[in-house]
């Protein structure tokens, strides 16, 4: 797992306390609204995201920048690549 600190995100989705599969649905929904190069931050306390979000990035061609840990939740960072156009999933 890649740990990062101080990543500047363009937009944040706070889904702490939301269970599977909200982390993937929110990721998909939010990334559609971004331009290539922009960074999405997802706040979640769902442990399954540790595996699912990097996998989702690999599958869709978006860049998994890494994750940071807060006191009781994770902060995932995903950069939209030009492989995925705005509005396309």
């Amino acid at each position: 797992m890649r740990f990062v600190h101080g990543v500047k995100a363009d937009i944040t989705a706070d889904i702490v306390y939301m269970m599977c599969p909200m982390h993937l649905l929110k990721l998909d929904e939010m990334i559609k609204g971004l331009d290539a190069g922009q960074v999405l931050e997802i706040l979640t306390d769902y442990d399954g995201a540790l595996e699912d979000i990097p996998q989702w990035c690999k599958r869709t061609g978006n860049e998994f920048i890494g994750l940071d840990e807060d006191e009781d939740y994770y902060k995932f960072y995903v950069r939209k690549t030009d492989k995925q156009q705005k509005g396309e999933s």
Binding site: D14, I15, V16, Y17, M18, M19, P21, M22, L25
Partner: peptide, 18 residues
């Protein structure tokens, strides 16, 4: 918006998972 709340009923993704 921005208020963090734990669901009362867990299950599917209805109402944004809330």
């Amino acid at each position: 918006e921005g208020t963090r709340i734990a669901p009362l009923i867990y299950g599917g993704i209805q109402e944004g998972g809330r």
